[in-house]
Design a binder for these strands. Structure first.
Lengths: 213, 213
DNA sequence: ACGTTTCTATACTCGTGAGTAAGTTTAGAG
DNA sequence: CTCTAAACTTACTCACGAGTATAGAAACGT
């Protein structure tokens, strides 16, 4: 007997309209990714088995293969989703007219906030080596693109004088490092709120540690 | 036939004094750790097999078990070594008499420099979940201790007014994040020197991104 | 109602890598 | 020149987890 089919988890549209099978499938695939990203973040990609993921859904492993080709594809889709969230948060800034400093601050705020979410946390916890070759290259490419956007903002701010002069590469690595690291230590269940973390980190990076005395 | 025993790699004392077997053993164990940390950094702990490590030494897997209990112990010894390097670099600062800001800057400089070295890079690349239970707890404890020392310096600086006021926890995570991340992007073979990276990152964190204009 | 497709389960295969058993060579002690 | 312990080897075992073959149940189109 079929025990518990994947519950189409979506608070907003709890009643899976019986007219559309296509839609239902995507909702379920979504549920697979959500379960996977949570398992990966908790146990690490390699340590989390697909049996684990299936168990979280109240389902058996082969069912997962109905929604994804293999484990590699699942991880890739997770990190891709995370990278897209980050990219969305910063994509508009390069075209903005404000000072480089203000644009960078806006970008960092969006970036930092994004890092408190599951898919983005998965990005920082995932090493290139976890992915197999076709996806690994794409993963690198997407990360690289985000770094390039950030570096562009840094450079623009240095050019218009609103940011301290310096080696744009190193400065960018410094700030993306601090931002990415959020995904490693932030716990949604902890006592620090998303907003407190976001504004705290951004303020520290913008103003620096020294009081200037 | 015994092919190639572990070469006692140690430029400084290439001639393994034939009088002391004990010493030789430690030199070789050292070689095992060096090969392991390099394999782990390159392929990731889980993906790097002990056969890989053995191959790098021109030796077979069982030989490794002559120098270590198991894979877990090897990883733990690697990260422990890394954490000790970091700790040594910052341990003296809390007892120092200078302003908090200057002590923190000194600590960050040592920390950043440490992060360009193999054992420390292994620390940032290793997730708690890679270790089995006895070592995992110890690993967390050691990391925690380093964080505490850093936070203490931050707090001291805030107290004496040499550092900007703020939430010491968040500020500390921000800076250790940027420092730890060095271990993820820095490549010894790249064009950036250790010193350039160290001073660049520290300067950025101390002064902040904004030019203040 | 009926055949077809979708969804899910049970019950495998198969590769890989950690760890071991047992025997062989090497090197130092007497 | 032995004899013994240390250092390595070859040749396994064994568990675990990715992925598959096959079949049964549910849902949809007509």
């Amino acid at each position: 007997m079929a025990k518990t089919p994947i519950k189409a988890v979506r608070p907003d549209q709890a009643e899976p309209v019986p007219g559309d099978r296509r839609r239902n499938r995507e909702v379920k695939r979504e549920a697979v990714l959500a379960a996977a990203v949570s398992a990966f973040n908790e146990k690490g990609f390699r340590a989390a088995s697909l049996d684990d993921v299936a168990a979280r859904l109240g389902v058996t492993k082969p069912t997962i293969y109905h929604y994804a080709r293999n484990k590699d594809e699942i991880l890739f889709d997770c990190v891709k989703r995370g990278l897209e969230i980050i990219l969305e948060a910063i994509a508009a800034l390069p075209q903005d007219k404000r000072l480089g400093r203000d644009r960078l601050e806006a970008a960092m705020t969006g970036y930092a906030f994004a890092m408190t979410q599951d898919f983005c946390r998965c990005v920082t916890r995932t090493a290139d080596t976890d992915l197999a070759e076709p996806s690994r290259k794409e993963f690198r490419k997407l990360k690289r693109h985000i770094d390039d956007v950030m570096r562009g903002l840094v450079q623009a701010g240095m050019d218009d004088g609103s940011l301290r002069a310096g080696d744009a590469r190193i400065v960018t690595f410094t700030l993306t490092g601090a931002l990415n690291w959020i995904g490693r230590w932030y716990e949604p269940t902890g006592q620090l709120s998303r907003d407190a973390v976001t504004s705290g980190v951004v303020a520290t990076l913008m103003a620096g540690l020294s009081s200037g005395v």
